[in-house]
Nucleic acid binder design. Structure first.
Lengths: 237, 237
DNA sequence: ACGGCGCCTTGACTTAGGTCAAGGCCGCGC
DNA sequence: GCGCGGCCTTGACCTAAGTCAAGGCGCCGT
């Protein structure tokens, strides 16, 4: 990790682009920017590790960060992937204690580090900031409810189908989507491993629901995918 | 569900016992109590259902509430069990929209319903309240990280062992613990089903780690349980 | 005391999905 | 161009855990 030179103005600019901080006056933004620190990470470097003492949280400026846990056998479960503008590692800010999971850079990453104290100071003066943060945590909770639901009650094919539809929706319904990460990592996001993911993609292709070429996936039967996402088995119920 | 007669004073009393609201002045407590409504539920009745529009959240007064999701096949995954003093269903308050899961009474239950608007009013005046809520959500998030970790990376025996140790720890390290729910429900809390839970308990007993009789479990080999919780297999690695 | 109903236990069977290992593909540096 | 390393794919195999179904055990009410 590299501590970067950066002006307070540049930092305030980054913060202004972050939905967490909408509604703040320039003055407060400047105050936060004053205590924030810009940091740079290379691929695979960790921002923080599970169990580490937390004195603040991060806001991604550019690149991507994944947050994950590891099993005793080394298997990995990705909990989140955060992009620019998203905060990360905020849990211990409000509850004290340690980071519950590990965060790592996926490719090159720049992030602002916000010390807890500075944030809470501003928060006490401006409840809007706290409400924004509550909204962020609420989204996070929804996300986890979904994840738990998927892991406990759905099979891999359903999770994958949903993920593909999701990617497509985010690309305004495009018929072709591009996997945004390596397949190995996508697998651990979906709570499985690369081999299984590969087989599932192959089966979907045999079924005629998709066509794949490298990281590209063409959705050839949207309804079929939707049925899979809803729980239909790959061999037709 | 029954709408109960209750005095504002009684409601304020219930609220005062709730850690979410510590640090509030009498005046604000009274304000919240003024808009709160006491409700009663019988076993299995739902406080809210997944997808329902949310206009507020609940605080358990007495009894227990479980929050869960259901798979297409009817299988159930319990996300939380809340007891007296704990808030429940707060996610949509800060982010709008619908309840992400369903909440049901486990046995007889009394709960206070707090309309979102009243809560936010007080929150804007008293940021402490929002900070308390942030702490609550943070605990919730930690809990989910743990749950996801367990479901994705641990086996049933590890989850069960951990749960037993947890019960024991909560009873100040007691050697004998009493399962606080039906085994069927414990199973779905642990992300499995009654049959598997039963078999796993039997195996642990054969191993000599525990002894069971009905809802009671004696921990006869704490280290063994700890090893299981840490990932050791039931047949000794 | 007895019948009935929930819940729990157990057995036999099935299956999703993980493990291991052997290639194949592709991009990159030399 | 060639070789090397990462990733992906595929096959053969194994195992944890779910399904289905048949009792057993308690507990509760009449």
């Amino acid at each position: 990790m590299k501590r970067m030179q950066s002006t307070a103005d540049a930092r305030a600019g980054h913060l202004a682009r972050c939905s967490l901080l909408t509604g703040l006056a320039d003055e407060e933004l400047r105050a936060l920017a004053g205590v924030a620190r810009l940091r740079e990470y290379g691929d695979g470097e960790s921002l923080f590790v599970r169990g580490g003492e937390a004195e603040g949280f991060y806001v991604v400026v550019s690149g991507k960060a994944k947050v994950c846990r590891f099993g005793t056998d080394g298997r990995e479960q990705v909990l989140h992937v955060f992009g620019p503008g998203e905060p990360c590692g905020e849990v211990p800010v409000f509850q004290g204690g340690k980071y519950p999971a590990t965060a790592m850079a996926v490719g090159a990453l720049r992030a602002l580090y916000l010390p807890r104290h500075g944030f809470l100071e501003v928060g006490k003066k401006r409840p809007e900031l706290l409400l924004n943060m509550l909204a962020v945590l609420s989204v996070r909770l929804r996300h986890f409810v979904q994840l738990v639901d998927d892991l406990a009650l759905k099979e891999v094919s359903a999770r994958l189908a949903k993920h593909l539809l999701d990617l497509s929706a985010r690309a305004r319904g495009a018929r072709m989507v591009e996997l945004d990460t390596t397949k190995t990592m996508l697998a651990s996001r979906l709570g499985t491993i690369a081999a299984t993911l590969s087989r599932t993609l192959a089966k979907m292709q045999r079924l005629g629901a998709i066509r794949t070429k490298g990281k590209r996936v063409w959705i050839t039967d949207r309804d079929g995918l939707q049925a899979l996402a809803a729980g239909m088995k790959l061999d037709g119920k």
